[in-house]
Design a protein around this nucleic acid. Sequence first.
RNA 1: GCUCGUGUAGUGUAGUUCGGUCCAUCAUGACGGACUCUCGAUCCGUCGACCCGGGUUCAAAUCCCGGCACGAGCACCA
Length: 485
Amino acid sequence: MERQKQQKRVGLKPLPNAIEGKVILRFAPNPNGPLTIGHSRGVAINSEYAKMYSGKVVLRYDDTDTRVKPPLPEAYGWIEDEYEWLAGRPADIVIRASERMPIYLEHAKKMLKSGFGYICRCSALKFKNLRDKSQSCPCRKRTEEDNLSDWQAMNDGSIEEGGAVVRVKTDLELPNPALRDWPALRIQHSPHPMVGDSYKVWPLLDFQSAIEDHLQGVTHIVRGKDLMDSTRKQTLLYNHFGWVYPEPLYWGRVKVHEFGGFSTSGMRADIADGKFEGWNDSRLPTISALKRRGFDPQAIRDFWLDLGLTQKDISISMQTIESFNSSVIDAVCERRSFVRNPRTLSFNMIGSEMPEKLQIARHPHGEIEGFRVWEISEKFVIEDTDYSEQLRLKDFADISINHNDAIVDSLERSDKRPIVHWIPINQSRKARLTSPSGSGFRIDEGLIENIDLVEGAIVQLERVGFARIEKIPENGPVDLLYLHG
RNA sequence: GCUCGUGUAGUGUAGUUCGGUCCAUCAUGACGGACUCUCGAUCCGUCGACCCGGGUUCAAAUCCCGGCACGAGCACCA
């Protein structure tokens, strides 16, 4: 009997209760900053499921908080662009909660009229104490008229922030205290960055999100497992409205070894304090930083899809993402020589016929056609730390070095001497490579092979690693940004 | 404290629904080797795990009971 080797499942698990062509998913970030690596999991998973079932993804901005995590006006556009970059296509529908306020307020009013919601004037603390004992607060049994007049007062601004809240009635004997008569809307008098002070009453996430998922016909919600209680609260609300709750799926918390967690508000504060240059600072775990450094969106998708959807809290390593990235970009990145801390040497012509030109493949396996043609000058550079008596200049010749003179021993490789990268001086220009280092940057000054350098291109610097060509100024050094090895 | 969830190699992950085909999959990593005019790529090999304790069973990663560990929610944040 041949034993059948087990295999690892490829691709995402099937979505429960999914009908081809009918699946609607949603990705709902808070526009209080651009997207982070954490968000990219949501983009990758949702867009992949949409692809699997010919479904749609709704990109929804849950921007109903003006106080704790206020929206950043520029972030709306950033997020749309980053979503498209990551998913490889734009979101099918884009909506902003702040533009749909009348709908939420209408539903709140309906809730009050139908008697499954009420306005609570207790303090948060007082309510919590009662709730923990499964006791109802005095506001719970007030009449519909009382509720509607308070609702009016909340909306016209005559009740202060914190003075009232709309609650959803639930069974107070529910074992999970978090679900008992949960708050649905609260008062915020601070203006909203996008719609100003048009509204005094704003829905909380659990309410706004629940209403919107139903209105958009969302069939599957993929969210963090920290939102499991949201599912339970919202299911209670759906029962009141007579709606059917979407199919929920969860993922666990993600940390990256190199970055820790990703707090958008934290980064926002650090940028404001000048600790970082901006959202695309290469030390930050933002999508804009990854894009700037030269990560390919396909690699980011591959990475998340390989992890799949599990409820385990995980701590991942950038090394793994980098490995996925290498396998995507290696075949399409041209090689270039970049010599850090250059040491200048001169060819000593004695005893050898020096070729004038040298042809080197743009890519070692011919994935990219063509050659880089070097004119060989008398002077050339190698890295200071490579300096040694006998070296092989990569793709060229074995040399022996005496002080700053290099004698060509052989053009063919004749022994096992170390192979180093190098450049003829006349073929080079100044460059500097920036890489994150500790809490700051490390800058390596050097000379780069001056052949077909293109701004924005990602190249593999021989024996150094992948880097993105950030800027090629008229004068002055070329700016290189380190990607990974 | 109450409620909910999760525990498979260093890091992730497959397998757990319907116990045997699992001396447990794949990737990444580490180590060693081959090859290559890069410290890149490719190829080969090695290392390394079912949280613990009972139980059921001919047979348990998988079922049952009891622990333990970790995480999350209990915000008028998302």
